[in-house]
Simulated assay, not measured.
Amino acid sequence: MNYSEILPSGISIVPMQQSHADALEQLQYIVFPDLQEDEILHAPQYRQHVNIFPEGQFVATDGEKIIGATSSIRYHFNPDIIEHHSFFEIMGGGWFTTHEPNGEWLYGMDVSVHPQYRNLGIAKALYRARHFTCKQLNLKGQMTVGMLNGYAKQSAYMTIEAYYDKVKSHELFDPTVSVQEKIGFEIRGLMKDYLNDPTCGNAGAIIVLPVDKNI
Rank of each mutant, 00 (worst) to 15 (best):
I6E: 15
L7A: 01
P8M: 10
V14K: 03
V14H: 07
P15Y: 09
Q17W: 11
S19Q: 12
H20L: 03
H20W: 05
A21T: 07
D22I: 09
L27M: 01
F32I: 02
D34K: 05
D34N: 11
D38G: 04
E39P: 08
I40M: 08
I40R: 03
L41Q: 00
L41C: 08
L41G: 01
P44L: 08
Y46A: 03
H49C: 12
V50T: 12
E55A: 15
E55L: 14
T61Q: 13
D62W: 08
E64T: 14
T70A: 13
S71E: 12
I73L: 09
P79E: 06
I82H: 15
H84V: 08
H85R: 13
S86W: 04
F87Q: 05
F88M: 05
M91Q: 10
G93N: 07
W95C: 06
T97Q: 11
H99G: 14
P101I: 11
E104S: 15
W105H: 13
D110I: 00
S112K: 04
G121P: 05
I122S: 01
A123K: 00
K124Q: 10
C134S: 14
C134Q: 06
C134P: 15
K135Y: 09
K135P: 13
L148M: 14
G150S: 09
Y151K: 00
A152G: 02
K153T: 09
A156G: 11
I160T: 09
A162G: 09
Y163E: 08
K168G: 03
L172G: 02
F173C: 06
P175L: 05
T176W: 05
T176Y: 02
S178F: 08
V179W: 10
V179R: 02
V179Q: 07
K182G: 10
G184R: 01
F185L: 11
R188V: 15
L190K: 00
L190D: 00
M191A: 14
N196R: 08
T199W: 02
T199I: 09
G201W: 00
D212H: 12
D212E: 15
K213Q: 13
I215A: 07
